[in-house]
Amino acid sequence: MTTREDPDRLEAFLARIDRGERIEADDWMPDDYRQQLIRLIAMHAVSEIMGALPEKEWVPKAPTLYRKLAIMAKVQDEIGHGQLLMRVAEDLVAPLGKTREDLLDDLFSGRLKFHNVFHMPAPTWADAGIIAWLVDGAAIITQGMSLSSSYAPYVRALQRIVEEEGFHIQHGESICMALAEGSASQRHSLQAALERWWPALMMFFGPNEADHPSSHQKANLRYRIRTKTNEELRQRFLTKYVPRIRSLGLVPPDPTLHYDAEQGRWIYQQPDWEWFRRIINGQGPASSARLTLKRLTYEEGRWARAALAQGR
């Protein structure tokens, strides 16, 4: 943590954090705290916006009228989460003279990354089910942790988000159960989707940095922006979901996966972390297609956005 700020002010700020006080957008904050928040919340915001795309592919194709309505509502919520988080991020970058447009330009230029899980292809309807059940299931664990974050505007956004995620997971459970209880071909497609998403789910929380935490992770823990490590979150996910996945007759594609009672933790095969790094740098299987789609439609809508902005 390097800062050029007045050490007394910084100390008083850290004392507020330690007392469990919440920080507001108009409170004094060290530059480093602001930068860590921007990094985290802007990334979270664009991840929600980009995260709408893989499921959106299945909106018009959802099998029944009911599923069409439900997945439309679900994807709409995700964009809504993007909106909430964007507003929080916008208020953080405003003192730096930046706006929503700058954040989106950062996304398109690759400076602002979106979550690794949304670089993956979703080639079947079963993928839409697995995303809603397990990817959202993983997301809610991270977001649940962040409810104790020190930054009050982020927490207020997350409270709304977490409430809706509860519905999303049930929407996903419902799709997956229908497929699990369906025809052989439906069951097969569900198992295939699980296998496709498993490495992404194992990478979801990021590498285990317990032995050599990154400077970002250290700063985030110090500022109580986050309160748990990547590995703690991943263990929590496995505890919640592996038994449920197996109970539906599905098999996670990891023969080593088991709970070690002595160590009190799940043993699992490490995903390819080199691949993880390539993915977050925009080299995942669907990275470029999704970014191109978003950028193209964003540019196509510029004339309408200009009319909207100038109608003030």
Partner: peptide
Amino acid sequence: DKWRRYRQAPMTPETMV
């Protein structure tokens, strides 16, 4: 009900996080 048939506790908003 379905989860109980699979011998799993249903997820609630509290247990999800």
